[in-house]
Design a protein around this nucleic acid. Structure first.
Length: 217
DNA sequence: CCAGACGTTGTT
DNA sequence: GTCTGG
DNA sequence: CCAGACGTTGTT
DNA sequence: GTCTGG
């Protein structure tokens, strides 16, 4: 699944994945974005792209007794399940990113693995947004998941839906469902330090390779 | 018709 | 064990 | 996703 | 909001 990710460069650089111009939101790069935190998303309405900071974790507006916010939605079922169906028409968004973490067992130890693209190229997650219950001006978002691509499958069987610039346009402008699939481009990875486990840690050390440490290969 | 449920992940 | 917070 | 807290009473 | 069950 996807429960932690990075957006480590400035917003202009991350926005290279958006196929049009828009106003950049104020954003501080992060090596450890966790659920409930605010991060940049992009929506598309009235033929314009719009960027803003939104909160990770979506509670559907119809829920009477809100429990845990949803941080992920299975892309395979979002068109059939009543829970998310209503969001497709007008609440699509993408989430700017340049890497994500998955935790995987190595022997008896669970360790974080960092996934990213060649040259640390920026990309986006496919998502849905909805207005926050209390703060009307704040949007919340959920990240779509899909089956793991080959480069990820040794570590985890699910991964976020990743989009390149072409995919962003197809999802936001076109609402094209066929972009919701495992990413087709090569994905790089390495084991990182457990300091990333705590959302309080947000330094470049989070994404550094930490090969030897602890349980061996 | 109304009432009630509606998710994801991983682990067992 | 279970919930909240980041 | 993981980390961290999780109760009560009375007294200051 | 939308679907299923009674």
């Amino acid at each position: 699944m996807c429960g932690r990710y990075t957006a480590t460069t400035n917003i202009e650089e991350l926005s290279e994945v958006i196929p049009g111009k828009f106003q950049y939101p104020l954003f501080t790069p992060s090596y450890n974005i966790a659920p409930s935190q605010k991060a940049p998303i992009v929506t598309f309405t009235d033929d314009e792209y719009h960027g803003e900071l939104a909160k990770w974790g979506l509670v559907p507006h119809w829920m009477k007794n809100p429990k845990k916010p949803f941080i992920n939605a299975r892309s395979e079922s979002i068109f059939e399940k009543p829970s998310f169906k209503y969001l497709y028409a007008k609440n699509r968004c993408v989430v700017l990113a340049d890497g994500f973490y998955e935790w995987s067992m190595f022997g008896n130890t669970k360790r974080p693995v960092y996934f990213y693209l060649e040259n640390h190229k920026p990309f986006a997650f496919a998502g849905y947004w909805e207005r926050d219950r209390e703060e009307k001006d704040l949007r919340t978002f959920v990240i779509m998941t899909t089956e793991a691509a080959e480069d990820v499958s040794n570590f985890h069987h699910r991964m976020p839906v990743m989009l390149n610039k072409q995919g962003v346009e197809a999802w936001l402008r076109g609402g094209r469902k066929e972009v919701l699939r495992p990413f087709a481009e090569p994905i790089k990875h390495h084991i990182v330090s457990r300091i990333v486990n705590s959302p309080a840690n947000n330094t470049p050390d989070c994404v550094l390779p930490a090969d030897g440490e602890g349980a061996g290969a």
